[in-house]
Computed example of a mutant assay.
Amino acid sequence: MAKVYKTLITAADRFVPSKLRPLWEHEAGPKTIFFWAPAFKWSLVIAGLGDLNRPVENLSIPQSVSLAATGIIWSRYSLVIIPKNYSLFAVNVFVALTSLYQIGRAVRHQQSAKTSGGK
């Protein structure tokens, strides 16, 4: 698999414009896992944004707490590793924010259910 990836990168290398060359050659650029891991992690953010319309009674607080915790932890980690990975930082901030928002929705729902004597 590494040979296939290396062949693709070498082939694409010829087509990278000079203005994008610094990004392409960066220590955390598209030639490394430091670029692709955060790129694919955006799918978690997209799923979290899709869940904003989910009925509040169907939210999982433990799942949201774990996503928020990992978002916060990895946000910090992305700024202390070398090279600093700002794309990893950005995606994890968004994972944490969407999860914290969902936690807030779920907690508010539980509190209103307790005060109204409902579920």
Rank of each mutant, 00 (worst) to 15 (best):
I81F: 07
L59A: 05
F94L: 15
I82T: 06
N92K: 02
I82E: 02
I61H: 03
M1E: 14
M1L: 13
P17V: 08
I81L: 03
V56F: 05
A106P: 10
Q63S: 15
I81W: 04
H109A: 13
A69P: 00
G117N: 06
T98R: 00
S18A: 15
Y86G: 02
W24M: 06
L79E: 01
V65Q: 08
Q110V: 08
L23S: 04
L88S: 11
V80S: 05
F89G: 03
T7K: 11
V93A: 02
G50D: 03
L59N: 03
I73L: 15
S64D: 11
R54S: 10
V4M: 13
F94T: 10
Q110G: 04
K114Y: 07
S75K: 09
F15W: 15
L67M: 14
W36S: 09
S99R: 05
A68T: 05
L20P: 04
F40Q: 04
N53V: 10
I72F: 13
T70H: 02
L20C: 06
I46Y: 14
D13G: 03
V93H: 06
L67V: 00
G50K: 11
A90C: 04
L100R: 00
V16Q: 05
W74L: 15
V56R: 10
A11T: 13
W74A: 12
Q102R: 15
N53L: 14
K114D: 13
A37L: 10
W36V: 06
P17L: 06
L67F: 10
L79R: 06
V91H: 01
Q63K: 13
W42M: 11
A2I: 11
T115V: 09
Q110P: 00
S99A: 15
F34G: 11
I82M: 01
L88W: 04
A113R: 12
E57G: 04
G48D: 01
D13T: 03
T7D: 14
S18K: 14
E25G: 05
V56Y: 08
S116G: 00
Y86T: 01
L8D: 07
S60M: 08
F94A: 15
L49E: 09
I9R: 05
F89R: 10
N92S: 07
T32R: 09
L67D: 10
K6A: 15
S112A: 12
W36A: 03
W42G: 01
L49N: 08
V95A: 01
S78L: 01
V95I: 15
G48W: 04
I61L: 13
P17W: 07
